[in-house]
Write a protein that binds this DNA or RNA. Structure first.
Ligand SMILES: NC(=O)c1ccc[n+]([C@@H]2O[C@H](COP(=O)([O-])OP(=O)(O)OC[C@H]3O[C@@H](n4cnc5c(N)ncnc54)[C@H](O)[C@@H]3O)[C@@H](O)[C@H]2O)c1
Ligand SMILES: NC(=O)c1ccc[n+]([C@@H]2O[C@H](COP(=O)([O-])OP(=O)(O)OC[C@H]3O[C@@H](n4cnc5c(N)ncnc54)[C@H](O)[C@@H]3O)[C@@H](O)[C@H]2O)c1
Lengths: 211, 211
DNA sequence: CTACATTTGTGAAGCTTTTCACAAGCTTTC
DNA sequence: GAAAGCTTGTGAAAAGCTTCACAAATGTAG
C-alpha cells in the first residue's frame, strides 16, 4: 500500500463511485471493469490498475460486487464519514454552493457561513446564521471545521486561507482566481472557470502557429 | 508546430496569461521564465518548454516582453476574439455564472439564456431575455452561439448537449454530474464540485489500506 | 572589443502514467 | 470432476510529461 496515488487516479475513483451508486439504484449486483470503464470514459485495464493500488476487490470470472466496491471506494475516498465544511463569502457563487444538495449527499456538511458584509451577517440561511468574518477563528475552532470553501474576491482569498489554516481548517476549495500559498500538508483544490473556458477556446482554435 | 498539446500545458498557459496581465497592470516590461514560474507554481524549465511548443518568444539574457508574450498567449489560447456563449439553466449556479464578470473580461460573452421553467422564461436579465428551451435551435443558429454552458439537472444534460451540438454549438462547459457523449470534435469540459471535494477528502484520509 | 553575467531554447535523461498481454482464479456446464 | 468461458490482477512495454543541463544568444561593463 501507500505508493503515491496520482490526481488522475483519484478523479477516476470518484467517477467509479458515481457509476456504482447509479448501479446500486438499479439493483445491479455485480459489474465488470469493462462496464465501469465505459461509464467512466476510460479503459478496463485502467480501472483494474486504479483499484489494484488499494487491494484486490474483484472476483475473477465474475467482476466486482457493486455494493462492496462502492463501500471500499467510499472508504478510500474518505466519504464514509461526515466532513464539516465552512463557506466564506455569501455572494453569488457562495449562495449557489450553499444550496447545492449533492454536497450533503456525499457527507460534506455546510455548517457555517461567513461574510464581511454587515448587510449579510446575521441573516439566517436554513439551519445556519451568517457570521462575521472576524469570527472565523472562533467558528472554525468551536464547530470543528475540516474543510473551507473560499468564495470571496481574489484579493481577500490569501489572507482568509492563512487564517483558516491557522485556526484548524485542513483543506481548502478555492474559487478565487488566486494561487494560494499554504503549508504543504494542506490540500488545496482550485476551481477556475475562466481557465475551463479557455481550455475550450484553445481546443477550438486552429491557428496555433508561431507567427 | 502542432504536436498534441497536453491539458496540463494548456492550464499552465492560462496561468501565465493571468500572471502577465497582472504584470501589465504594474507596467512591468519584461519577465523571465523564473519569475513566471514562481507565480504559476511551476518551474522555469517547464515555462520555457510550454512556450517552446508554439515558437520562441523570448530574448536570451533578457527574458520575455510582457506585452508581447501576453499577446501571443491570447492568440494561442484563442482569447484574442469574442466567443458567443449561451447558458442553459437559469437556476442557482446558472444565475451566479451569468453575473460573473471575469467571463466577459476574457471575451466570453453570455448572449443567451435558456430555461424550461415558464416562470423564468421571458424574464429579463440585463441585456438578455430568458428563452424557452424549445427555442434552443433557433437561438443557437440566429445568435451564432459558439459555446454552451450547461447548468441543468443531470438527467436533462445529455439531451440538451445533443441538441446544442446539432444546432451548431462547438464546445460545452458542463456543470451536471453526467458524462456527456458527443462527437469527438466537440470539446467538453466538466466541472464537478463533488469530485473536487472528494479529492480533498482523499488527501486527508490516511487510512487507504485494503482492509 | 573582450570578458562577464544572464537567460533562453532544447535535446536527452529521468520519472510517471497508461496500455498491453497473459497467467491465475472463479463459475457454470456437461 | 474436467472442460469451457469469463474476468481479474499485474509485470512489462510503451507512451507521455517533467526535469536536467548546457550551448547559443543577448546585453553590460570595463
Ligand atoms: N459568480 C461566479 O459564477 C463565480 C464563478 C467562479 C468563481 N467565482 C469567484 O468566486 C469569488 C466570489 O465571486 P462572487 O461572484 O460570488 O462575488 P460576490 O461579490 O457576489 O460575493 C463575494 C462575497 O464575499 C464577501 N467578501 C468580500 N470580502 C470578504 C472578506 N474579506 N471576508 C469575508 N467575506 C468577504 C462579500 O461580502 C460577498 O458577499 C470571486 O473570487 C470570483 O472570482 C465566481
Ligand atoms: N448549485 C450549485 O452550486 C451547483 C454546483 C455545481 C454543479 N451544479 C449542477 O448544476 C446543475 C444545476 O444546478 P442548480 O443548483 O443550479 O439547480 P437549479 O434547480 O437551481 O437550476 C436548474 C435550472 O435548470 C432548469 N431546467 C431543468 N430542466 C431543464 C431543461 N430540460 N431544459 C432547460 N432548463 C431546465 C430549471 O428550470 C432550473 O432553472 C445541476 O446539474 C447541479 O448538479 C450545481
Amino acid at each position: 500500500m501507500s505508493r503515491r496515488i496520482s490526481d488522475s487516479t483519484v478523479r477516476r475513483l470518484s467517477h467509479y463511485l458515481r457509476a456504482l451508486e447509479e448501479l446500486e439504484g438499479r439493483h445491479a449486483t455485480t459489474v465488470s471493469s469493462d462496464q465501469l470503464a465505459a461509464r467512466g470514459g476510460t479503459t478496463a485495464a485502467q480501472v483494474r490498475k486504479d483499484l489494484s493500488h488499494f487491494g484486490s476487490f474483484g472476483k475473477r470470472g465474475l467482476g466486482y460486487s457493486v455494493a462492496e466496491l462502492a463501500g471500499r471506494l467510499r472508504r478510500i475516498l474518505g466519504v464514509d464519514r461526515h466532513w464539516k465544511v465552512a463557506l466564506v463569502g455569501a455572494g453569488r457563487i457562495g449562495s449557489a454552493l450553499f444550496e447545492y444538495p449533492d454536497f450533503a449527499a456525499r457527507g460534506f456538511r455546510l455548517v457555517a457561513v461567513l461574510d464581511r458584509d454587515p448587510a449579510k451577517v446575521g441573516r439566517v440561511w436554513g439551519p445556519v446564521t451568517i457570521s462575521d468574518i472576524s469570527e472565523l477563528e472562533r467558528v472554525v475552532g468551536e464547530r470543528d471545521i475540516d474543510l473551507m470553501i473560499l468564495a470571496v474576491p481574489g484579493d481577500a482569498a490569501q489572507a482568509i486561507a492563512e487564517r483558516a489554516v491557522a485556526a484548524g481548517a485542513r483543506g481548502l476549495l478555492n474559487f478565487a482566481p488566486t494561487q494560494l500559498r499554504v503549508a504543504d500538508d494542506v490540500p488545496v483544490t482550485n476551481v477556475n472557470l475562466v481557465m475551463e473556458m479557455e481550455a475550450l477556446s484553445f481546443a477550438l482554435t486552429k491557428d496555433q502557429t508561431a507567427s
